[in-house]
């Protein structure tokens, strides 16, 4: 149970970073932390007590293994996270190019 709480704390750390930080790069790091917390949660959901990695091998039979489905899901989620992060960083670099700053309070051409 405590692992789930640690996972939740990680999620909240990410959200805090997202909401309170003013630097664009730190906000992106916050997004990444939130995503990792969710991925970690998925892995925890799939865990079975004393389970082994779900890999078949010659001359071995796996009796007690963790849920392989969530691991596949997490791989997909990681790939999606990679795409989002790369896009965000590219946009942040272009913003720096235009505004000359990473500070979100100074990037305020849009209002109203």
């Amino acid at each position: 149970m405590s692992t789930y709480f640690l996972c939740l704390i990680l999620f909240c750390v990410g959200l805090y970073c997202l909401l309170r930080k003013r630097n664009l790069i730190k906000i992106i790091i916050g997004i990444a932390i939130v995503e990792y917390a969710v991925n970690l949660f998925f892995i925890l959901v799939g865990y079975r007590m004393h389970g082994r990695a779900p890999i078949l091998h010659r001359e071995q039979e796996v009796l007690n293994m963790v849920d392989p489905l969530v691991q596949a899901l997490v791989l997909t989620a990681i790939v999606i996270g990679l795409a989002t992060t790369a896009l965000l960083i590219a946009i942040a670099i272009r913003i720096y190019d235009k505004y000359g700053t990473f500070d979100i309070t100074k990037i305020n051409k849009l209002k109203g």
Binding site: L87, I91, A92, R94, K98
Partner: peptide
Amino acid sequence: SEELEASFKYAIMGSV
């Protein structure tokens, strides 16, 4: 610059 700013905001909200 406005488009990038809007896109960044949108992308952050969307990711959350």
